[in-house]
């Protein structure tokens, strides 16, 4: 029997809608793959586009939470944020395995199954990136007084970062911009945060914000640079170890590694 490729939007809602459709259309799950983004055409596969429907995605997410628990839902959410072509199919097959009742204990811990292992790998990758962004993200204060952070994460983690920072800085106006994907998390002081897709003009404006920081910002940055410089012990210096913990790709947006002047 030929394979069916479901082509959906690259978001959690898009993938969950595709999962819903796979069951609704009674497609054999072992012959279905879900793709996000550009689809490679195959000779023996039929391709169907799936339009994102938040209500259907919610039904699937409710089922996952009810049947497998919140922890599994969290694991799958992290996996769906990965920048990897296999994520849609892996989520579908994992849900299918869970519904079949073959996995004992928590679904996402049945690492003997290949698709669950892929969900685990993707989830771990996203969790690691999320953790590193929590560490290395740097806010700068714009002249208007709000804080902004420009990030370039490997995985799509802005939606995970927002709850962390809005709990931490509830009375601050701040924006976290994912420059690679054109997504921004906006938190107005004392109010709930929102996630936006930026248009070209807004992207340009946010990229330019780095050049318009306040005087206070320059002083704080200088103090922190002085602190980082001084706290290192000369006799123990080890740039290799520093690079291992703090890879070079993060340093472009970090205040302490700003070029002098």
């Amino acid at each position: 029997m030929e394979e069916t490729i479901l082509n959906c939007q690259d978001s959690a809602e898009g993938i969950l809608t595709a999962v819903y459709r796979a069951y609704e259309w009674k497609l054999p799950r072992d012959r279905v793959s879900i793709r996000t983004g550009a689809v490679d055409l195959c000779l023996f596969a039929s391709c169907r586009d799936v339009e994102t429907r938040p209500d259907l995605a919610k039904k699937v997410s409710d089922t996952i939470k009810r049947r497998f628990g919140r922890q599994v839902w969290e694991d799958l959410s992290f996996a769906m944020a990965a920048c990897d072509e296999r994520k849609g199919t892996a989520v579908l097959r994992t849900i299918d395995l869970g519904l079949s009742g073959r996995i004992r204990g928590r679904l996402t811990q049945g690492l003997g199954e290949e698709w669950i292992r892929i969900v685990f790998e993707l989830g771990r990758r996203v969790r690691n990136e999320y953790h590193r962004q929590q560490e290395f993200l740097r806010f700068r204060q714009a002249q208007e007084g709000y804080l902004f952070a420009l990030t370039e994460p490997k995985e799509d983690v802005t939606a995970f970062l927002m709850p962390h920072f809005s709990d931490r800085l509830p009375m601050e106006n701040f924006v976290i911009v994912d420059s690679l994907r054109g997504i921004a998390g906006v938190h107005p002081a004392g109010r709930p945060w929102v996630l936006l897709r930026l248009n070209e003009e807004e992207k340009g404006r946010m990229a330019g914000a780095a050049g318009h920081t306040s005087q206070e910002e320059a002083e704080a940055a200088e103090l922190f640079r002085c602190f980082c410089r001084t706290v290192s012990i000369r006799e123990r210096e080890n740039p290799g170890l520093q690079r291992q913990h703090l890879p070079l790709r993060f340093r472009g947006t970090m205040t302490e590694f700003d070029p002098p002047g």
Binding site: Q134, D167, P170, F227, N238, L241
Partner: peptide, 30 residues
Amino acid sequence: SGDGTGIGNTVKAGICHSFSADGRCISLLK
């Protein structure tokens, strides 16, 4: 967790925010 009006929270696992030239973490203002 944060109280909604002050500033800050803490995370069980801790967070390192930077690494100095000797490879040791900078987590707190020491």
